[in-house]
Nucleic acid binder design. Structure first.
Length: 840
RNA sequence: GCCGAAGUGGCGGAAUUGGCAGACGCGCUACAUUCAGGGUGUAGUUCCCGUCAGGGAGUGGAGGUUCGAGUCCUCUCUUCGGCACCA
């Protein structure tokens, strides 16, 4: 063992040795408990960033712990390799996207290896190769077979910067998720969709199994799916006899309906205009409302505007005729695009009615209460405590009862029905870009849409394509690709030229890791059966409703086609906080980026890893501090010197290789005070770290405990040198310190471990059990309170194996000195913590 | 507006079941290391009063439960995140 601490040298040495020993490779082994540690796969952007370092360091600590616990650990990594940045770079530099992508992968692979993460590199997957994306196409065909893929012309989100369509999930605050400054515009396009809405209920329902997922993620997904239970009611448009269907969650208030509002895009609008004697005026006004609605999508607090169509609709419940308005706040995409206005019990309807002088009728009043005098307050009284009034046969019912009865009645009479609406929309997967999976579909003039047969997969992305980024599918300009034969009739046909959303790639990559090279199916069922579910998934919160909902959807489809026999792929999810600098997200434009590779060069990878774990609990955001990392570096240097010193002494005594870690037992009363102190601290550290890794995951406190143990060793240095601590006890403590460190700083730990005389790397060493006897306090200074006031302390020598009874007796003996003759009412003794004497 | 998370020293944070608030680290101060700087070591470092001894206050705010509250309950303020004219 080298007495001088040179992290670069140590890290290179151990990385080479681990690779040579194939230390992180695992295979299916049904005799052993498996454990699947998964981190979200990176996009090969060129260089890893601190978020990656944090993500993979957390995963690595867990993976190493599980290895040492004796589990058969799978810990894979891959590349989310399709996507726009490579295509854009390719356009700019007149090169091929694959060139960028593979260069970046090579570079980032090197950086990850430099970080020393325990990956099984044989399982590496890149999503941009035909061996992978052919299975995206295969899944597409299965979706098509099951009616889950369909083509539809619709208004879609278009990002002018990406020059392509975006899914709803990829629009954030009206802007593109990649271009936060670029507002999304709407375009009418023919697109492929995947019917995720068919799984909305199951996505909600199965959340009950995700007990080890963060509440936050589940609630975000729940919001996103946006289930609301209500009813559709058919009104009739007077004069033209047309049916007008509305959706409401509050059918109980329908007797308070004083108008119908249509979304500006509602198909009935054009019809009503045409029936007007003076169509032009209404047409202009309607266009005006529509324009304001478009603005309202960007600016949410825009004023409510509307126009009366002059037509009325008949309320089937009471036969009343109410005016039909066009209103800018009604969404065509939600429900039926038409709503009933109940101004007395809905704030928006109230505002609108006041503005346009529409009547307001209260139909729900508080139980035993009076009709509210102030109309503004009325809509607050529509809750569970209310009773219906002015509602004909339904008077006196609670809203809950009324909803049920009115829905039943509407169904019986045929003018309505109970329905459920979801906010989530089908997943639009078509992208008008090149660097993605070709959609395996052929258009034939005589046969229509024809799926590419399985035997013809993969549909290879043609390498020679002129990339312009001009907003149309680049594949359309490659005749050899486009022009093909119909698999049905062998007639002339054209291929689909759009590619798939890259979120398709990441929806199932973690299955592929378990059998990355199989070429007869997307996954090997046996391997998946053994390794799944993923025991621990770790990644950023930003994917809460993108990747993490698509992935769940995909698994359910896979279950339905018999590929897997479970419905949720991830048992436990951990979302780490962001790495920020000076209170802001790191970004090139802000110039506050901390480059991990620069830090590796300056401090070594272990120091960077240690600092990212130590600075904050993993779930929280952490603000990078350049001086903070110095502390981590100092600690490692100190620990290294400490162990090196005793390793050197050992070597000079001629110690050869030792076997395993010494788990010797010592009688407590035969230990010197220094030995007791050291052993206690050692086992306390072990206890803390073990319990923390079993669930709490506050790695910052684990590192702090290791620091305390090292500090304790430092403080005892003189006593140790004087021989007050037996060498075997010292060695035992040092070994446990090193094993704890091996989770966080594996290179240095292995170097130290070797220095302590062990041949095997720490990963192969069983995680040591702490001994509760040693971990317990054995001599305590207990604060004594009288009537809750701190009055002093007593020293109580508590044998660690003793019970509370003994402690109580000792405490009571000593209590007298604190009460000076007053009557004791009770003594509250918190074991090992505190004595409180309550006196009169 | 709805949902979720969080408020503790100069800073990052600790206190797992209510039991010595501020572990660990950064920063700072003093001293040592026979120049400076750096490094390293030692001591100190919540605030206020006090030379010391010691005393008082203190976990966003106001109440409450309890012998005892950062932790539990009620109300409230602030910050961050998600959803949002969703009928």
């Amino acid at each position: 063992m080298d007495p001088t601490y040179d992290p670069q040298k140590i890290e290179a040495k151990w990385q080479a040795r681990w690779a040579e020993q194939k230390l992180f490779e695992s295979e299916v082994d049904t005799t052993r408990q498996k454990y699947y540690v998964l981190e979200m796969l990176p996009y090969p952007s060129g260089d890893i960033h601190m978020g990656h370092v944090r993500n993979y360091t957390i995963g690595d600590a867990l993976a190493r712990y599980m290895w040492m616990k004796g589990c058969n650990v799978i810990h894979p990594i891959g590349w989310d390799a399709f996507g726009l940045p490579a295509e854009n770079a390719a356009i700019k530099n007149q090169r091929h996207p694959s060139e960028f992508t593979f260069n970046h992968i090579d570079r980032m692979r090197g950086q990850l290896k430099r970080l020393g993460v325990s990956y099984d590199w044989r399982r590496e997957v890149a999503t941009c190769v035909p061996e992978y994306y052919r299975w995206n196409q295969w899944f597409f065909l299965r979706m098509l077979e099951r009616g889950l893929a369909y083509r539809k012309k619709s208004r879609v989100n278009w990002c002018p910067s990406c020059e392509t369509v975006l899914a709803n999930e990829q629009v954030v605050n009206g802007c593109c998720w990649r271009h936060e400054e670029t507002p999304v515009v709407e375009r009418e396009l023919e697109q492929w969709f995947w019917k995720i809405t068919a799984y909305a209920e199951r996505l909600l329902e199965d959340m009950k199994d995700l007990v080890r997922w963060p509440e936050r993620v589940l609630s975000m997904q729940q919001n996103w799916i946006g289930k609301s239970v209500g009813a559709e009611i058919d009104f009739t448009v007077n004069g033209i006899g047309e049916r007008l269907r509305i959706f409401t969650t509050r059918v109980d208030t329908i007797f308070g309906c004083t108008a119908i509002y249509l979304a500006p895009e509602h198909p009935l609008v054009q019809k009503l205009i045409s029936f007007r004697p003076d169509p032009e005026k209404l047409r202009q006004e309607a266009a005006h409302v529509k324009a304001s609605a478009v603005r309202a999508r960007v600016d949410v607090n825009l004023e409510k505007q509307g126009v009366d169509t002059g037509f009325t609709a008949r309320n089937p419940f009471n036969g009343e005729n109410v005016p039909i308005w066009i209103a800018n706040f009604v969404l065509m995409e939600y429900g039926t695009g038409a709503v009933m206005a109940v101004p007395a019990h809905d704030e928006r309807d109230f505002d609108f009615s006041v503005k346009h002088g529409l009547p307001i009728r209260t139909v729900i009043v508080p139980r035993d209460g009076e009709v509210p005098q102030k109309l503004e307050a009325a809509y607050t009284e529509s809750g569970a405590n209310g009773r219906l009034v002015n509602s004909g046969p339904y008077d006196g019912l609670t809203p809950e009862q009324a909803i049920e009865k009115m829905t039943r009645d509407a169904e019986a009479k045929g003018f309505g029905r109970g329905t459920t609406q979801y906010r989530i929309k089908d997943w639009g997967i078509s992208r008008q870009r090149y660097w993605g999976t070709p959609i395996p579909v052929i258009y034939c003039d005589s046969c229509g849409i024809v799926p590419v047969p399985d035997k013809d997969l993969p549909v290879i992305l043609p390498p020679d394509v002129k990339l312009t980024g001009q907003g149309q599918s680049p594949l359309a300009s490659v005749p050899e690709f486009v022009n093909t034969r119909c698999p049905n009739c062998n007639g002339r046909a054209r291929r689909e030229t759009d590619t798939m959303d890259t979120f398709v790639d990441s929806s199932w990559y973690f299955y592929r890791y378990t059998s990355p090279h199989i070429d007869t199916a997307p996954i090997d069922k046996e391997a998946v059966h053994y390794w799944f579910p993923v025991d621990q998934y770790i990644g950023g919160i930003e994917h809460a409703i993108l990747h993490l909902i698509y992935m769940r959807f995909f698994t359910k489809v896979m279950q339905d086609i018999g590929l897997v026999d479970f419905s949720e792929p991830v048992a436990r999810l951990f979302t780490q906080g962001m790495v920020i600098k000076d209170g802001a997200k790191m970004s090139k434009s802000k110039g506050n980026v901390v480059d991990p590779t620069v830090m590796f060069a300056k401090y070594g990878a272990d120091t960077v890893r240690l600092y990212t774990l130590f600075a904050a609990p993993p779930a929280r955001d952490f603000d990078w501090s350049d001086s903070g990392i110095e502390g981590a570096a100092r600690f490692l240097m100190r620990s290294y010197r400490l162990v090196a010193k005793y390793a050197a002494q050992r070597a000079s005594r001629g110690g050869g290789h030792a076997s395993g870690s010494g788990s010797s037992k010592w009688e407590l009363d035969q230990l010197s005070p220094e030995e007791r102190r050291l052993i206690r601290k050692t086992h306390q550290t072990l206890r803390h770290v073990t319990e923390d890794l079993e669930g709490r995951w506050h790695f910052n406190t684990d590192v702090a405990m290791a620091m305390e143990l090292a500090n304790e060793l430092g403080e005892l240095e003189k006593a140790i040198d004087e021989g007050k601590v037996r060498p075997e006890i010292l060695k035992n403590s040092l070994e446990y310190l090193v094993l704890v460190l091996s989770l966080f700083v594996p290179h240095i730990a292995d170097e130290l471990w070797e220095g302590l005389g062990h041949a095997e790397p720490t990963l192969r060493i069983p995680w040591p059990a702490y001994d509760p006897q040693y971990a317990a306090e054995d001599e305590l200074e207990i604060p004594v309170q009288v009537n809750g006031k701190l009055r002093g302390k007593i020293r109580v020598a508590v044998s660690v194996s003793e019970t509370e009874i003994r402690e109580r007796a000792q405490a009571e003996e000593k209590v007298a000195q604190f009460i000076s003759g007053r009557q004791v009412i009770k003594i509250i003794l918190v074991p090992k913590k505190l004595v409180n004497i309550v006196v009169r």
